[in-house]
Design a protein around this nucleic acid. Structure first.
Lengths: 201, 201
DNA sequence: CGTGGCATGTAAACGGTTACATGATTTA
DNA sequence: TAAATCATGTAACCGTTTACATGCCACG
């Protein structure tokens, strides 16, 4: 069903900046699209070989002086066309897999405090995430003013920021609700009918 | 690194309602955690066999009369313990893979209108998503008032709703920005220095 | 000269989906 | 009895991660 997207990531990154090696591409994936994509060497190197064999990329050498033993690549015309073709195809996101939500869903089975712990952990992660996203945004706002990719990069960034903020807001409310739930359970282990007739001891 | 989570989904669902067959579990995954998890038969049936062999679940029969040829299972004590153990472990979400964001990131390479099309498509998906989530929320609010799992289910729901709303807001703004970008490009294909000296024809 | 990082690669294992095969049971 | 759906299972395939092997190069 979903195939080959490693190849398109490579084509896309080479379209932004040519003369990249497999190593460069790995680093570029981490530092640019790392918040919503990932690739490992085990995919990148074979994909490079295949793309070169198909003529979508070709070996190149960076203009800047003698570098180490490394094979760099650049997009060919057909590679560029292939990328544009793929971009025009409808996107389809992978089946979702969110272990945090899965554990929260089964929270009733968990020991006391476990779910609150998970939400707290998520809050920390999201706070860190928000900080880095805002940093990147500020940096991109300062530099990159003439980069034609910038508007698109800012859009991906602003979606990340918006989602993280929404998650943080939710987390605060969730912590409150879980705290209320735990105290309620602690006080009334069998809360059969809370608001029926008043119950003496 | 991340292993076996199919087993925990099965244990979790059986903890909520015992006497489920593989078929039931598949349906339950889709209808309950389907918005943030998925499992296929190819994983469920082998996992059931393995869980039974390990004594974490055991064959059972539903109390309600004669049913079809089907093997139902129920949690054992050790299965329940195993589930609680896993729940207490820190969650770790999978490496992200969002094809929509990937395509948007490379939007500069795409033909005119392509990125706007993707965002529009996302908006439609998210509107549908929001509608179904709100439906589920209303249903759960009406029914299920005594279900001890309800607070946790509502939390997963409200996160989904919050994130979808945030994405919808972002989408509106993104569409406006992309529209502005396209008209700007149409008017000035080489926008070298917009705000330097005024340029006559 | 040795260490650490740069760089390229591959084999094995894994998790997961897909497609297919099979047959029982219900319902029209 | 025909069609639809319930139900169980498996084999093949695919994408991906992980771990490992290798060697170059710069720097202290």
């Amino acid at each position: 069903m979903q195939r080959n997207r490693t190849a398109y990531v490579i084509l896309g990154l080479l379209s932004i900046e040519p003369n990249k090696s497999g190593y460069d591409i790995r680093k570029a994936v981490e530092s640019s699209v790392g918040n919503f994509w990932s690739e490992s060497y085990g995919q990148i190197y074979p994909a490079l070989k295949k793309l070169a064999a198909e003529g979508l990329i070709e070996p190149s050498h960076s203009t800047s002086g003698t570098r180490k033993r490394r094979q760099e690549y650049a997009l060919t015309e057909s590679g560029s066309a292939c990328l544009r073709e793929w971009l025009a195809l409808p996107f389809q996101n992978d089946p979702p897999r969110n272990e945090f939500l899965l554990k929260l869903f089964f929270g009733h089975e968990a020991a006391s405090g476990v779910s609150m712990g998970h939400v707290g952990e998520l809050q920390q992660k999201n706070r860190r995430m928000l900080a880095t996203l805002l940093e990147i945004e500020a940096y991109a706002q300062r530099q990159q003013s003439q980069n034609p990719n910038k508007p698109y990069w800012m859009l991906t960034l602003s979606l990340g920021i918006a989602l993280t903020r929404a998650a943080l807001d939710w987390g605060e409310s969730a912590l409150a609700q879980l705290a209320a739930l735990e105290t309620a359970l602690a006080e009334a282990p069998q809360p059969a009918e809370i608001n029926s007739a008043a119950s003496g001891t």
